Computed example of a mutant assay.
Amino acid sequence: MTIDARIDNDNGALAVPTLGPVLRAVRDSRKVSRERLAFNAGVSSSYITHLEKGARERPTREVLDAIIRYLDRVVPLSVEERRQLRDLAGLTATGCPPLEELRAAVTPEMRGLLDQPLPAAITAVGGHVLACNPGWERAFPGTREGVNQFHWLFGCEYARRALVDWEAEVTLSVQAFRVAVGGFGGSETFTELLDELSRYPEFRRIWGGGGVATVPPMWRIRLRDLESGTERTVLVQTGMVHTGPYPGWLVSQYLIPVPC
Rank of each mutant, 00 (worst) to 15 (best):
N11C: 12
V125F: 04
Q84M: 13
L77V: 01
L71D: 03
R36N: 11
G54H: 06
R69G: 12
E101M: 14
V43N: 04
K31T: 15
R69V: 06
T18Y: 10
Y70M: 04
E62N: 05
Q84T: 15
R111L: 05
K31F: 11
G95N: 11
D87P: 03
E109A: 14
R24S: 07
T18F: 05
S46F: 02
T49S: 05
T94I: 11
V106I: 01
K53E: 11
A93G: 06
R86V: 04
L118Q: 11
S33Y: 01
T92D: 08
G42D: 12
S46V: 08
L114S: 04
E109S: 14
V26A: 10
R58S: 10
E109L: 14
L71E: 07
R69M: 06
V26Q: 15
A38W: 00
A15N: 11
D115S: 11
E62Y: 04
A121E: 14
Y47V: 01
D10C: 12
P21H: 14
L51G: 01
R61I: 05
S44V: 00
V74F: 00
A93D: 05
R111H: 08
R24Y: 03
L64G: 01
T94R: 13
P59S: 01
R58K: 08
L19F: 02
A41N: 14
S78L: 08
E57I: 02
R73M: 12
S33T: 13
K31V: 15
T123F: 12
T49R: 06
S29N: 15
D72F: 00
L37N: 07
P21F: 03
P59R: 04
Y47I: 00
L37M: 03
E109V: 11
Y70D: 15
R58G: 05
V43T: 07
L130V: 01
E100Q: 12
R34C: 09
V32C: 04
G90W: 01
L130D: 09
R30F: 00
A13Q: 07
L51D: 05
Y70G: 12
Y70F: 06
R56T: 13
E52K: 07
A105Q: 03
D28R: 13
R30D: 15
E62F: 02
G95C: 10
V22S: 09
G95E: 07
A131W: 04
R82W: 04
E81I: 00
